[in-house]
Design a protein around this nucleic acid. Sequence first.
DNA 1: GATGAATGAGGCTTCATTCAT
DNA 2: AATGAATGAAGCCTCATTCAT
Lengths: 221, 221, 221, 221
Amino acid sequence: MNERSFIVPLSMPTKRSEPQLDRRAQILDAAMICFAECGFHQTSMHDISAKAGISVGLIYRYFKNKEEVIAALAAEHKKDIAQLFERAGEAPTLLAAMEVLFTSHCCKNSPQILSAFVVDLFAEASRNPRVAKVVRGVMRAKAEGVAALIARSPEAKRSAHGLAPQEIAEMIFAVNDGTMLRSVLGPANMSANQQRERQLNVARNLWGLLFDRTSHANGHR
Amino acid sequence: MNERSFIVPLSMPTKRSEPQLDRRAQILDAAMICFAECGFHQTSMHDISAKAGISVGLIYRYFKNKEEVIAALAAEHKKDIAQLFERAGEAPTLLAAMEVLFTSHCCKNSPQILSAFVVDLFAEASRNPRVAKVVRGVMRAKAEGVAALIARSPEAKRSAHGLAPQEIAEMIFAVNDGTMLRSVLGPANMSANQQRERQLNVARNLWGLLFDRTSHANGHR
Amino acid sequence: MNERSFIVPLSMPTKRSEPQLDRRAQILDAAMICFAECGFHQTSMHDISAKAGISVGLIYRYFKNKEEVIAALAAEHKKDIAQLFERAGEAPTLLAAMEVLFTSHCCKNSPQILSAFVVDLFAEASRNPRVAKVVRGVMRAKAEGVAALIARSPEAKRSAHGLAPQEIAEMIFAVNDGTMLRSVLGPANMSANQQRERQLNVARNLWGLLFDRTSHANGHR
Amino acid sequence: MNERSFIVPLSMPTKRSEPQLDRRAQILDAAMICFAECGFHQTSMHDISAKAGISVGLIYRYFKNKEEVIAALAAEHKKDIAQLFERAGEAPTLLAAMEVLFTSHCCKNSPQILSAFVVDLFAEASRNPRVAKVVRGVMRAKAEGVAALIARSPEAKRSAHGLAPQEIAEMIFAVNDGTMLRSVLGPANMSANQQRERQLNVARNLWGLLFDRTSHANGHR
DNA sequence: GATGAATGAGGCTTCATTCAT
DNA sequence: AATGAATGAAGCCTCATTCAT
């Protein structure tokens, strides 16, 4: 009990949840970097706390255990994907939208960082049902999102080659994920931009097969 | 029994180096299963020894440490890929060859087993230079193998859509790896065969885009 | 059973025990080097077998276990000391005899090799009663041996400074052992010969204090 | 409760860095006993933790690994030697100073404890460069310390027998170390005090040779 | 006599997690 | 809210010793 107690009511009225979120985000950011660099199971809680500049114990105030940190990051990844689709939906053409989707994993930090994390996420999902559930959700969201984009896009309709939107979406994401998987090995002698270009090129080639060139000029709205 | 046996009967034709290889293979088989089930870093040496039905210490007579087991499996994987291409090269048509390639990761044990291992392998490669080297070798071998298949295939030439064999190969493998990556999450409510069909379907759709339907009937020899 | 069996009787008549001793000696030689280099407990049985060029199992045909190897070497050391005193006893003067004693640990292999072994032997003796017993025997033999040399030496009698032969012997061996203990750290930048000289010098200084200079010329018989 | 309590009562006088040192010291004390009893390489980390009454893991908060514990003890030994020389420097006569030096290894715990540790330290030094460095430092400090004592001592100057202070110092320490080496085998049937007397006697005999008896009464300043 | 494959206990070290402050 | 000392289980690896050949 100090003098301040008489001035400020015992419970502060202002934004209770803000610092909570800040701490959470701070921890998750640190964890993401560590996980991408070392993998889930090579990263120790101490690594995370050190990267976040806090104490180990504090992590446990915000996350029940290590698995919850992983799960939280998986959920975060899901949200990122959702946002990605919002951005993609605002693109003027289907191809522009695709470009947004396909370059997403190249931007946030460095090309490999996010990729390595996602590959680890899949690996973890194959063993950890909880993570699997989230990742399956991610995959579904992606598939549906792209299918929706295609469905409302005139140029896609005209050149479907007899494929259902679902099938096209699946193909697109197979290429997308495959490219990402391969990108974790990005040859050291290639700049981030070069890699990005190389990966985009694969995607563009696929689009070239899927969609009429003539439709590029048309907006898909 | 060869002619020599009649000349030097007292010494048994002894298989001295055989048990060595047997043990190695036995350990690698066990390790593969464990790694696929639990991941490299969640699998303990004891897990491997138990699965192989031997003692922990014995593993160290054949491998210097855990990393060497991983590296050996990576090398094994590389050999498997090479064999795969030999088999694919003997297929009558390009599409038949492709089918061999695309179903490879579904057969050996169970669909997910191999996939999970390979995804872990990529994850490891992104952090472990030694593994990275092997995996890069695998990727190069795959890309070159497919490019070669395409180059000598008349139906591919006719329908290249202006893409270089390298580019087509890259696309094919992006789809292949992407499919594999996604397969580690194979929905539990889908049979192995159903999954295989589903994955093959993605590949077939890509081929449909890449190659003229008319050429399907022609052998590529 | 081969043709040779009919020519050479089944049991060879010649020297049964020789190869036994050879093997034993071969193993002990190897063990001595390993022990001196790495210490008793950092040396593995495999190290010894490798140095001896034989298999691990064979060591167990000649020694019950590792401790027996150590004990055998300790016993060997005791014999070496006895031989040393025989040689010293034949020296023409007391000082010549002393020189034999004081340079013993510098000759066999390299100055440090034997020293390191002996220091380890003392360390082991402080914990292992069996080794302790042998080492105590060594110490007693040394003390008595020197005391005897002194007792029958006229120049020593003349210059005893009122010390009993036992006391002089003890002092001599304190210096001897101390010099040896310190020699295991022989500065790398000093040649084996330099070190030997340096150590001898300490001993000579002690003799200069203990014995009249005038007596050097006289034989002690 | 001291006066300060009335001025700043809310914050405890907190000893933040103290427990750190306490733990370190606690671990080192336990390690010293274990090492002396069993030797460096027969002592397990669990032995140390058990003797210290803490968990194994805690040791690693204060020491990077076992070698660091050994190195820390070696450093501690070096400090002890330095303190010893401070004490010796305050002795009224050279002989009194010598007595301080020569009885040092008999006091701290039990006669053999420290000796066994030091012998192990030398053995370790002969193989471990890091420990060697510290031990060499100890030896140099001892030699210089004694040389300094002798240099400023009138009774030593008068009776140098033509020996340089360095040479006398070396001899003294050869005797000192030799006595210590031999003391690890202290016959079980001799009391600690008897052993101490016996060892001191060797040293006294040496002094008797080195220094004039007449000078004993004089202070050495 | 000789080999070396095989065992499994035990040592060093790390790390997720808890808890007193 | 925050710290970091503390725990102890568990992982990797080594090694003395045995035994079938």
